[in-house]
Write a protein that binds this DNA or RNA. Structure first.
Lengths: 239, 239
DNA sequence: TCCCGGTGCTTGTCAATACAAGTTGGCGTA
DNA sequence: TACGCCAACTTGTATTGACAAGCACCGGGA
């Protein structure tokens, strides 16, 4: 962290300017040449930084045209997708949590399958309710492989973000595959989220892997749609 | 299409190899040096191609480590997120559609707001049912700004993909912002999707913009969760 | 046997340069 | 005035070269 890579420095600076409104939505981003002069960099790192912002949907543009600020709302990149706490903070709300159960035991079949565990192999299973400004927002049923989950057994789960605990513990959360659909609230969902059974809930099932493709975590999250929604931006890429 | 850019060529070739299983899941991707030799390219374009696959979640890896194939299922990049037809084809299903209404008129308030239209300004409003293997899958309520929607008024909407018609007509669909939640089926949803009213549906609201940030299209899509789900992959980026 | 360290390979970062391709705006002409 | 063309600017693409940082493996020494 001593001296960050140049392209990260540029990207972070531009993100900050957009966030502060210094670069307003609709206004043009400084040209590559200007950014090169300002940061004393060559075009390589500057273009890397701009490509990152482009992928996040913050800026648009095209060949021959100056890039333009499209929005100042970041479109749920990986970190805020992974961490309820982070997402809440970014949107200006207060996150909370109530842990109902955490235990080391044999997980149910879908979890075992997603994590690639053989029958009878144990895992760390978690049931947690997430709150947004003290209102029930999401029920979290998460299963971790033992080497990851063991980091959580001794931690104070009602204190903060699991994501923060894991990354601080050196866990390499690299990619996640999400499947979204809608389900009626079952009895447990209804009780914890304080809705009537059958209420439509947004379900997000997810498996998170490290950079080698090893599954680390499987989760079945159910959102109260009047409290939390999922927003994301997609950008026309190469293909 | 005469001669594609080199980095696109490399990316497309690698995607194809992964799709065909030639590069199996879990196996290492050829090193940058090998790809340079194979395609007669320098490291720049090769690295650009690998970065694209990394963003799509197809490969993982890290400094000093060979990249590894993570999955052979592409994680809904922009195109397949935008086009029901494309998504269906990629997953091996047969798309269909029934157009119930298309008209030029003043849109409802949410649509007008999303498209930045003043009160009384007209737009092209569409109501369509999408089918997957002849089963009702999704109700599409889409509103286009006039310059875009006019391309559709004369087209045969039951023939193919709107996305294809628009891009062929030179429309610059660049980025989309999606908001996902769950709602109970209303009377129209229930009739078209052949479910009982109140059934939980996955709702996707989306505004698509061009590369300057001008809104082109607003849509409220409701999915039957037992027929279609939304899957996507997120990758830990820079930030 | 186990651990340590070195070595070579691989990816990450950056510079300087060159040309292609597209956009924008202004100038001159019809 | 209106149109078209050209010049300047901007981004896209690609090369070459260089060094840093991390990883995997193998061999030697304790």
């Amino acid at each position: 962290m001593a001296t960050a890579a140049l392209h990260r420095t540029v990207a972070t600076a531009l993100r900050a300017r957009i966030g502060r409104g210094e670069l307003a939505v609709g206004s043009p981003v400084p040209s590559e040449a200007e950014l090169c002069r300002e940061f004393g960099a060559s075009r390589g790192p500057v273009r890397q930084a701009l490509a990152a912002l482009r992928d996040e949907g913050l800026i648009g543009g095209g060949q021959g045209r100056r890039a333009v600020v499209l929005t100042d709302v970041p479109g749920q990149p990986f970190e805020s997708f992974q961490s309820f706490t982070r997402r809440a903070e970014l949107t200006g709300h207060r996150p909370g949590q109530r842990t109902y159960d955490i235990d080391r035991r044999v997980p149910d079949a879908p979890a075992a399958a997603a994590l690639g565990l053989g029958p009878g192999e144990p895992a760390v299973v978690l049931l947690r309710l997430r709150l947004l400004d003290d209102r029930p927002a999401m029920v979290e049923r998460t299963t971790f492989i033992p080497s990851v989950g063991d980091l959580l057994l001794d931690a104070d789960l009602d204190a903060g973000s699991i994501y923060a605990i894991l990354t601080a513990g050196g866990v390499d959360l690299h990619a996640a595959r999400h499947t979204l659909d809608a389900v009626p609230a079952d009895a447990t969902d209804a009780r914890l989220l304080e809705v009537t059974p059958g209420t439509p809930l947004l379900r997000e099932r997810r498996v998170t892997t490290d950079s080698r493709g090893t599954p680390l975590e499987w989760s079945d999250d159910r959102h109260r749609p009047d409290v939390t929604t999922i927003t994301l931006t997609t950008v026309r890429g190469r293909s």
